[in-house]
């Protein structure tokens, strides 16, 4: 299969307080079409920087980003991007929020609504069309935010810790919900998380990032078959993989802490 997304030799350097900071160094990712790929690493390892670069919101210091064989450095609107905060506009109804991406692209409102309504019904937002974001729970708001991203209709979707602010139970429900959506749409997904369980449960591949300067320390393919169910989370292969990731990560967290103490 051809690579859908290629991040080739990307680095990012910042100046802060007159000192040069390496946020990311020589990072390369090759992601096949339709894969669900997670990125985990200690905080401050440049995961968000990577996403900003792929989304075209920030230029890299070196390297390039290819999508469908085309250089997309500095080009916005090529990927769907969802942040931890739901970023729903508070003065718009849920429906009007969900069609925002289409509205920006100039899709007529009627057509956009006609496309959004069946999806809202299918993915558990029926009856909330005319509610305002404030009236919804955190989980429901994230659903709306994700549907907005899906309806923006890009093949590639970046999810930056979308469930980080949810409680454990809602989170599990949302993970299953996300898997259902992903299986229906088969988009290529890049998913940043701190949660090892979440990464294993959802992903085909997991990239482990090292502490600052961020670079890829390991790429692990999750061998579990799909569709996955919650019982997979207690299977021996799951536990084994979790142990491996824990070892890799705790080493990085130690390094990150040590470097913080020095500086």
């Amino acid at each position: 299969m051809a690579n859908k997304v290629e991040v080739i030799g990307v680095s990012k350097y910042f100046m802060r307080n007159g000192k040069e900071i390496v946020a990311m160094q020589d990072t390369s990712l090759f992601i096949e079409e339709g894969r669900f790929v997670s990125i985990i690493g200690p905080s401050g390892c440049g995961k968000s920087t990577l996403f900003n670069i792929i989304a075209g919101l920030m230029p890299p210091s070196t390297g390039k980003v290819m999508a469908d064989g085309q250089n997309i450095v500095g080009k916005t609107g090529y990927v769907g991007y969802m942040l931890q905060k739901d970023m729903l506009l508070p003065w718009r109804t849920i429906l009007d929020n969900i069609i925002l991406g289409m509205e920006i692209r100039g899709v007529p409102k009627k057509e956009a609504t006609a496309r959004a309504l069946p999806l809202m019904e299918k993915y558990g937002l029926k009856g909330f069309e005319n509610h305002y974001p404030k009236e919804l729970s955190g989980g429901m708001r994230q659903r709306a935010a994700l549907l907005r991203t899906i309806l923006y209709d890009r093949d590639i979707i970046l999810l930056d810790e979308p469930f980080g602010a949810l409680d454990a139970q809602t989170r599990l429900m949302m993970q299953n919900w996300l898997l259902q959506i992903w299986e229906d749409f088969r988009k290529t997904v890049l998913f940043v998380t701190h949660d090892i369980d979440e990464a294993i449960y959802l992903s085909d591949d997991i990239y482990v990032f090292s502490a600052r300067p961020g670079r890829i320390k390991a790429k692990i393919t999750v061998p579990m078959a799909r569709p996955r169910t919650q019982s997979d989370m207690t299977s021996p292969e799951f536990t084994e993989l979790k142990q491996r990731l824990l070892d890799l990560l705790s080493e990085e967290v130690r390094i990150a802490e040590a470097s913080e103490r020095i500086s």
Partner: peptide
């Protein structure tokens, strides 16, 4: 909110769209 603007740009919005919609 800078993140709100960021979201709009990631959805491919032009500046005037960010201005009128956000």
């Amino acid at each position: 909110d800078a993140d709100m603007e960021k979201l709009m740009y990631s959805l491919g919005a032009k500046r005037w769209q960010v201005f009128t919609k956000v």
